[in-house]
């Protein structure tokens, strides 16, 4: 009997949150509900009442995300708000975007928050992820030591700035870790008439924070997301030399964050309905407000973009995906 009730509650919760997140696959919650008894069975003896939110209490939510959301402190803020609402603490694992998606590919994450659209699309096309939403954005900035040996300060063109650094062979520190920032950096090099390589181009193979420290110590240049830079600029000697789009810089430096759930059809033992609750919360009014109001040193770090009267439907599917091209797709029930 308790199993039945639990199953019902989980279904109700899944359906409700699926509705919030604006997705169509609400019946996907069923797999998870059936599995639910395994991982948190002992806790739902009573007192749940009719509130579907309470049924997730005692369960676990594993989020893999990027170092930028964690190191800026934003994640703790939204996770506290989520816990307050749903009673479930979030286990957040801060990795690079590549590693965060890889962990989810292995079936070890319920929900993924990253910032490399190309990698997210690949992840979805492989069938590992569903229900992607645009979450928020900020931008990348090009940083360097205040004396700026290559002379790129105040430039309006990120590609040109990279070319100048390469020409001057001034040291450039790359993340080199398949993170969202690394992917964005490589996209800029792709546009540039210069090859990143040679002794001036160093791969840190580390998170943004480590890379900023290293860049600062070396008096080098690097590409950083604005949030991590603001949160650490007190500890390092680096200045913004080329601004991103938030401050009127080039669009190529835009840094959009997406959030998506592990596909329950592939990763049946993941907590799909709770993952969708998390996505629903973050892309709903309350979560977006937390993002909007999060400031550090009086500066807003992330700009919410999930709520729109005129939604961009392309956020749910891989870029360029068309229903006609994939007619045999049976994902949507």
């Amino acid at each position: 009997m308790p199993i039945q009730r639990r199953r019902f509650l989980a279904l109700a919760g899944g359906a409700a949150t699926a509705g919030v997140a604006g997705c169509t696959g609400m019946f996907d919650g069923e797999d998870e509900a059936a599995d639910g008894g395994e991982d948190g069975g002992g806790d739902d003896g009573g007192g749940n009442g009719g509130d579907s939110a309470a049924s997730v209490e005692g369960e676990e939510l594993v989020l893999t995300t990027t170092t930028s959301t964690y190191d800026t402190g934003l994640l703790d803020e939204v996770n506290l708000a989520f816990e307050e609402r749903f009673g479930t603490p979030v286990q957040a694992i801060a990795q690079g975007t590549g590693a965060a998606l890889e962990t989810a590919r292995n079936g070890d994450a319920d929900v993924i928050m990253v910032h490399a659209r190309g990698s997210e699309d690949e992840f979805m096309e492989e069938g590992h992820g569903v229900n992607r939403r645009d979450l928020m954005f900020n931008d990348f900035v090009i940083l360097g030591s205040p004396d700026d040996p290559a002379g790129i300060e105040g430039g309006e063109d990120a590609v040109e700035a990279f070319e100048t650094v390469a020409e001057a062979e001034e040291m450039f520190v790359s993340r080199g870790d398949d993170s969202g920032t690394h992917v964005a950096e490589l996209e800029i090099w792709d546009e540039a008439d210069a090859e990143p390589g040679g002794e001036w181009y160093v791969e840190a193979g580390a998170g943004m924070g480590d890379t900023l420290n290293q860049t600062s110590q070396q008096g080098a240049y690097t590409l950083s997301d604005r949030g991590t830079y603001i949160s650490q600029r007190g500890e390092i000697e680096l200045e913004i030399l080329v601004e991103g789009p938030v401050e009127g810089g080039p669009e190529i430096l835009a840094n959009p964050y997406g959030i998506l759930a592990a596909n329950p059809a592939v990763h049946g033992d993941r907590n799909y309905d709770l993952g969708m609750a998390y996505i629903g919360f973050l892309t709903g009014q309350e979560g977006q407000e937390v993002v909007e109001n999060y400031t550090l040193d009086g500066e807003q770090l992330f700009f919410p973009e999930a709520i729109s009267e005129d939604p961009n439907f392309e956020q749910y599917v891989p870029e360029g995906w068309s229903a006609n091209g994939d007619a045999d797709d049976d994902e949507t029930a």
């Binding site: 991982d39 594993v62 286990q91 694992i93 590919r105 292995n106 079936g107 070890d108 033992d269 993941r270």
Partner: peptide, 13 residues
Amino acid sequence: SSSGPFGPLGLVF
């Protein structure tokens, strides 16, 4: 890991 031999134990992380 969930995709590994002892995945069902749910011990990762």
